[in-house]
Simulated scan of single mutants.
Amino acid sequence: MAINNLEELYFSQSALAIFNNCRRRFRYRYLDGLYWPAEWGMNEEVKNDLKQGRQFHLLAERYYSQTLGETVLNSNSLLQSWLNRLKTFSAAENVVSAEQELRFKEDNLKLLAKYDLLKYDSSLKKFIIYDWKTDKKSLYQKDIKNSMQSRFYLYLLYEAGYDYFAADYELEQMPELIYWNPRYPDQSLQIKYNQDDFQTDKKYFQELITEILAEVEFPLTADLNKCRFCEYRPICRGEKTENKELIEEDLDLNLDWEAVEEIEF
C-alpha cells in the first residue's frame, strides 16, 4: 500500500536497510506501493525454506505464549526437530512477550519493531531479546553484530520499551540480543548494549530518518551488483531478476501472520 507522504510511515529496520541499500527501491515499495510478495523471484527450494521459516516462527510464538500444548508435528519431522531444539535452547520461562510489537514516536522519529521473543532476567534486571533465524547460513558466517537489525532492535527496546514496561518490571541494566538458528542448535550469538552504543544509535537513526524525509529524487543505486536479485530490476534496468536466496534480514517474516499457512498437526 502506498502512503501519501513519508511523515505517515513508521520505519522498521527493513525499511531503513532498504533505503541504505537503494533509495529507488525504497520509493517503489513504500511510496509507490509497488510491493511484491517475498516469494517472488525465488526458486521452489528457497520458497520452501521461507515457508518453513514462517512456520517455525509461528510455532515459537505459540510455544512461548503457551498456546501450543504438547502437539506432535506428525506431518513435518523437520519442524518437530526444530521445535524440540528450541525447547532445549530456551524454555518457556521468564517470558515477557512473544511477537511483541513496539512503536515509538518523537518528533520526526517514528519507529516500529516486532520482536520474536522478549524475556526478563530478574537477577540482572534487564530484558533479553531473542531473534530466530532459519536460513542455511551459520550465524558465524554473517556480520550480524553491526547490522541494522541489531542496532535498531536494541536501540528501540531501550528507548521506548523500558518506559513501556516500567510498571511491571524493574529494569536497571541495558538489554541484550541473542540470535539463534534451529539448523545450528549449538550456536548462538549474543550482543551486549551500553550507553555509548545507545547514544551513537540515537544520533544515527535521527540523522538517517531526517535524510529520508528530505529525500526528493530517490536515485538508483550505482552498485549494479545490488540490482541482481532486486524485484524491481525489470523496471529499473530492463533485465530479469536473478533467482534470489533466502536472506531473512531482508524479509519482514513476522508482520503478516494471517498469511502464514496453518501447520497440519
Rank of each mutant, 00 (worst) to 15 (best):
R25H: 08
P182S: 05
T200P: 00
F265T: 08
I247W: 13
E45K: 14
Y179D: 00
Q55D: 02
I144N: 01
D32G: 02
E159R: 15
S122I: 15
L139K: 01
Y204G: 02
F198T: 01
L83N: 06
E217F: 10
L58M: 12
N48K: 13
I212A: 03
F198A: 00
R183G: 00
L59I: 08
D250P: 02
A92F: 13
Y130K: 01
N4S: 15
Q206A: 13
G161C: 08
E7I: 11
F26E: 02
D168A: 06
L78Y: 05
K192W: 07
E264Y: 14
L68V: 03
L6E: 06
A113K: 08
M42I: 07
F229T: 13
D107S: 09
E159W: 07
F19L: 05
R29M: 09
K244P: 00
I209Y: 11
R233I: 03
R151G: 01
P175S: 13
W132I: 12
Y158Q: 00
F56A: 02
N243S: 14
S122Y: 11
I212D: 04
D256I: 11
D252R: 14
F229H: 09
P234E: 08
N4Y: 10
F198I: 01
Y10M: 06
N84Y: 09
R25I: 05
D186L: 15
L86T: 00
S123E: 14
F26Q: 00
Y169R: 04
K126E: 09
A2D: 05
F205C: 01
Y130G: 01
S14W: 09
L139V: 05
I144D: 03
S138D: 09
L251Q: 04
R103C: 09
E39D: 06
L124V: 04
K240T: 06
F127S: 02
L112T: 03
Y164K: 13
D250E: 13
Y153N: 00
L171I: 15
K87Q: 12
I178P: 01
E70K: 15
E39T: 12
D197G: 02
N181F: 07
T67C: 06
Y158L: 05
Q80V: 06
N4Q: 12
N181I: 02
D168V: 05
Q100Y: 13
N108W: 11
P182Y: 08
A98K: 09
L118Q: 05
L79E: 02
E261D: 15
P234W: 15
D250Y: 10
Y63T: 02
K244L: 03
Y140R: 05
G69E: 08
Y35V: 14
E239A: 05
P234F: 10
D252Y: 13
E239M: 10
L79W: 10
K244N: 01
E101P: 11
T221I: 07
S150W: 11
G33R: 04
K244T: 02
E99I: 00
G238V: 04
L68A: 01
A113E: 07
C230V: 07
L111M: 12
A166E: 08
S14Q: 13
A222R: 08
L208H: 04
N243Y: 10
N108I: 14
N21K: 15
L124Y: 08
R103K: 10
L156C: 00
Y169H: 05
C227W: 10
I235T: 09
K125I: 03
P182G: 03
D196M: 14
N43R: 12
T88P: 00
E264F: 12
Y120K: 05
I178K: 06
